[in-house]
Design a protein around this nucleic acid. Structure first.
Lengths: 188, 188
DNA sequence: TATTTACGTCAACTATATTGACATAAATCT
DNA sequence: AGATTTATGTCAATATAGTTGACGTAAATA
């Protein structure tokens, strides 16, 4: 039995133990105390979730802002500036500094819009696509591991749960974004 | 039929529609494409989750950093500086600026440790406790609403899912923190 | 032709974090 | 008792990510 399987067993035991605890407090999950636990779990989960990528980005001299831009450009190639601003909810001035660095470093390229020549449509370069894949791999790995730990019945629930956490008014936009990204991802 | 119930029905329909979509792609949830969707849903969910509190904090001239400090001090009264630094994963210099403002504004107070007089144990003032409650109410309201939208079977799954998202090495610490906070919350 | 839209840019500013160096008082080890 | 470690505070310089406001330009549109 190697370290990996020992670790694996420990993690599964971990998951089982937590599942028991979660079940026990299932009744209180809809209470304030249960909800407060969720608030903190969400904080810790997000902290660790972005931590993986942060470490990789350091090697490139990039930060989280670069990651977000690269990610969404890669997932939705041909995205215009305005679309990116809407997703990221930052000002164009703030985006510009980060985007300029990604353009200069050759991770993203901008092409003139065909329908509307004022637009600058953003695409990842091969180098950018590679980094985006590497970053995404870290994060999807975490999710795939989580799905592996969770009982099958709870797997679909994660997606439902996260979607329900999004502002009601934003859901349509997010759904459209995901559909677009899916289509773009299926193409190559 | 008032606006509220119309909205409520729309949201439930929303939830049902998404549940169908989530179930359809349940098979792909363990695939890379499904995991990529989760990555983005997590981003959007967190963005909206912190957005609520941000708006309230503006009225006080505080930011997210203040929120985090106030939150953890309120949830774990008597927390020492070192404990806070470990939870927030920031440097003491960074904490100090924010903490100083909270102390001066009378939202947090520090008492000399009884067992170890070098420690400064942090407590919320009544005013601080009130703000912490108001902020927490916004966030727990979102979770309670989500739990209401979700089918009962998926409710416990949210907690399991978030816990599984946390770094393995951090889980014990988080569990201890939650237990401690729960005990502190039960006392008064 | 007039207006709006999509974008770029300069400037000043804020918030949140970092590293590094140094200080102090209390606890603890030898 | 003296040396060391620990918990904390503080000064300074710097980085990153964001903001508001003002102004410019080219292309689309009314």
């Amino acid at each position: 039995m190697n370290d990996l399987s020992t670790r694996k067993i420990a993690e599964l035991a971990e998951a089982v133990a937590w599942r028991r605890a979660a079940t026990e407090m299932a009744a209180t999950t809809t209470s304030d105390e249960g909800a407060l636990e969720l608030v903190e779990l969400f904080f810790f989960a997000y902290r660790d979730f972005v931590g993986d990528a942060d470490r990789l980005l350091e090697n490139y001299g990039f930060g989280r802002a670069h990651h977000r831009v690269l990610h969404f450009v890669s997932r939705r190639p041909g995205l215009a500036i305005a679309g990116l601003l809407e997703i990221l909810r930052i000002t164009k001035q703030s985006l510009n500094r980060v985007l300029k660095q990604l353009l200069e470093a050759g991770f993203v390229e901008a092409r003139e819009g065909v329908l509307d020549r004022r637009q600058r449509l953003l695409y990842p370069t091969p180098q950018g696509a590679k980094l985006a894949r590497d970053l995404a791999a870290l994060q999807t790995a975490r999710f795939l591991k989580v799905m592996d730990e969770l009982p099958p019945a709870a797997r679909g629930a994660a997606s439902e749960f996260l979607f329900a956490m999004i502002d009601y008014d934003e859901r349509e936009r997010v759904r459209a974004h995901l559909a677009c990204a899916k289509a773009a991802g299926a193409a190559p």
